[in-house]
Design a protein around this nucleic acid. Sequence first.
RNA 1: GCAGGUAUGGCGAAAUUGGUAGACGCGCUAGACUUAGGAUCUAGUGGAGCAAUCCGUGGGGGUUCAAGUCCCUUUACCUGCACCA
Length: 938
Amino acid sequence: MEKNHQAIEKKWQNRWEEKGVFKAINGSEKPPYYILVEFPYPSGAGLHVGHVRSYTAQDALARMKRMQGYNVLYPMGWDAFGAPAEQYAIKNHIHPKEAVKENIATFKKQMKSIGFSFDWDREFSTTDPDYYKWTQWQFLQFYKHGMAYKEKVPVNWCETCKTVLSNEDAAGGVCERCGSRVVQKEKSQWMLKMASYSEDLLKGLDDTNFADKVKLGQINWIGKSVGAHVDFKIAHHDLTFTVFTTRCDTLYGATYCVLAPEHEYVDIITTQDKKAEVDAYKKACALKNDLERTELNKEKTGVFTGAYAINPVNKKEIPIYISDYVLATYGTGAIMAVPAHDDRDYEFAQKFNIPIIQVLEEVTGTPHDGEEKKNSIVAIVYDEKEKKYLTLNWGKKGGRLFIGGTIKDKETPLECAKREIAEETGYTSLELIKELPKINHHYYAYNKDKYFNIESTGYFFKLKDNSKIEQNLDEDEDFKVEWVSEDVISKEIKDELHMRTYEYAKNPGAMTGDGIHINSEELNGLNKEDAINKMISWLEQNHCGKKQVNYKMRDWIFSRQRFWGEPIPMIYCEKCGWVPMDEKDLPLLLPDVAEYEPTDTGESPLAKITDWVNTTCPKCGSPAKRETDTMPNWAGSSWYFLRFMDAHNNEEFASMDAMKYWQKVDWYNGGMEHTARHLLYARFWVQFLYNIGLVPNKEMIWTRVSHGMVLGSNNEKMSKSKGNVINPDDIINEYGADTLRLYEMFMGNYEQDAPWSTDSLKGCKRFIDKVIRLKDKVGSKTGYSKDLEALIHKSIKKVEYDLTHMAYNTAVSTLMILANAYEEKEELTKDDYHLLLILLNPIAPHITEELNEELGYKPLTEETWPKYDETKLVDSEVGIAISVNGKLRNTIKVPVDSSKETLEELAKNDEKVQKHLEGKEIVKIIVVPNKIVNIVVK
RNA sequence: GCAGGUAUGGCGAAAUUGGUAGACGCGCUAGACUUAGGAUCUAGUGGAGCAAUCCGUGGGGGUUCAAGUCCCUUUACCUGCACCA
């Protein structure tokens, strides 16, 4: 008895629409529940099976919540401004709004054919004048509260798209849209003061229930770092510049400073003899875009200005360089460089031969009371020809070590190292490659029964030739001198000090970790944290610095030189400057024209439409010109979830009453790729509206979750060029919307990517057919079948839990298990079957409604979600695992809640278990009721 | 380089607090019913072995009566950020 899914699905979709069963009612008595999916950009390609996955997931939740008595708001709309529609329009010479209209119609038809329970009454597009009127209105609020300003800034400029890109759009120095290289260009742009919200955006996360990875993404993007400002005077100038550092504890190790090439002092302080070189370098940097800068980060570049800065802590003069590894846009555009403790500075210092002063030494070993202090050395000698290292094999006494020794009076560490090598091994012909960072080591010497704390200096030598003198050993020195390979060293050298010294020799670089300070006067002996605090107090007392917090996040560049975006409602008047449009004149409509190509000068196509551009100043009435830039794509999506709460309001963007009723988006689903940008913009926008009293909460989104992608069957991202695209329309035609929905819920972990499999899809079709067949078993009895009761109650609990915890795949498998149990039975009660239909309805709404109607029940959209009974969740019998020494030996069936003693007896006397107990002594028996018995034997 | 994530049969994957690894589905094998099967049903299906049994959650170590799950270490892949001082 084959069902015609196409007819059934159409029938129920029409019925739902006629009855308006999915309408959310503002101010309803029922508790509100707001479920949101990111509204799509209606592309020409139509709905993607990826959309189906997340919309179905949220739809299942919405349908269950409705049955549970909630007033559910599950809206849908269109984020339709943006480049693709504009490109399409340029190509085909039609207005982008025509293309958008067509695409929306396609999307909407597809969505309806899948049976999503959207409240279509609240539908809108960001391109509707009724909507973007409020986007413009909100921009004016930003402006009026001093949060929007126009400024000439170096911006990311895409030569191909002829537009400015935000840092977010130009991540990695590549245009997000067209993939071409981004160059730097000075342009006057509208900016929103987002950076000033950094701390609030960080703190606000505490008032959300975002997934941890989402929160972390936001935290990283905001990029807070706590440090200090330090003022450096410039020698022979009456000038001071400030650097930002998180490591003011290393000030004594600062051996040079670097200014960004764009820094305002560069021209002033550069000495005559350096001027040509500095100018050339500045010019070269200006030509580089972000990508080239990063590409070249393998090799540091820079130029000495000829000027010197005075280190405030020790009054030493240190050279000032300029280099593009210092960014003009972060911190103060200037740094103090501590090559011993910063990787980048180390690299630069190496290249330019700048001194490296260690001010922090790593600590190894464990401190102990009553330690004796010593200074000592560890010498590593390398034979390049043989590729071997010189070691001393102390046998059982001390294992394998490099050469070590204590520094004698009036001996330098280097002399000590050479002496020890000669005495212990005889080798004398050595070339010093490198002095290694000092290490602070704690250890216990068995031969002397004493604890030591040593400061060890490492030396790395190369063996020049084999010339030797005779060894000169102490009595207690009993070792073999052996040359060994790297392998042997990594296996046999266990001593922490020697191993760390060896690692320093092999991988020279900065020591960026914690330790104790040296060469730092009053900071000596302190760890990193204490030294930072002490230094900050010192800087503040001496008025040459202070504690300072910095953020990576910058202000939001809010202009685009495009046609297809919200016009920025600002007017430029020669007399009055920038004047905001009168609010009552909004919306400022996009004109209808035939040419959308951007201009070569980087102005928006709107600039060519003189009728539109020329206007009068709202303030003084003189002739004036409109702003021709439009808003970025992210503008409309920054507040759309507020509009859904009150979509038809002509007086306000949304009334306070409506927003107070819905409170927050309870459950917001979107792609992981939007966690940094869209979500941050939206939160910033909302926080601003809250601060001016226009929304009820500082955070308007409670839970944010993200979904994995649906990949092609070859495990690659679906794309036309790879030919692995699945069109949902085809699947619906052949298998039905319910099958598609069911499969997409079943395909895998919702938060992870999952490949498409048409075979698995067929399995889901079979399951639906099975549910249809089960109807033949339904008899006239009511109430649940006794032997199914426990499983039924378990299933209700599990499905309910899974749908609210994004475990859709296991919700489906639970239903499959239930159906399998039904199939075993000769006869089912009406209630047995009705229950299965209710539980399955959120995921497969059409077929369940149909079967439900055939059974004579009221529609499932009016049904109440069943309640499970905790007391009926357990079976009367339970399987107990019996293991011996943790290995499973048998499983037995016992009445549920059998006592520990009973289980222990049963386990010991079990035939299969006894075999493993023979001749052994029982040490311990662990009994976990209703789970496991583990017998430990010897 | 930094941060985050993932790693379990031939495949997609399960395993709420450490407690019977592989639920559920796909595929595969054999059989039944059939003119036919891409329908349905029955049985089987992690590996080795006739079996008892042994081995199995990327690799190595550890904690525990007991580890996919906790700790240390290491590898591979994915994603995001990338000179952020």
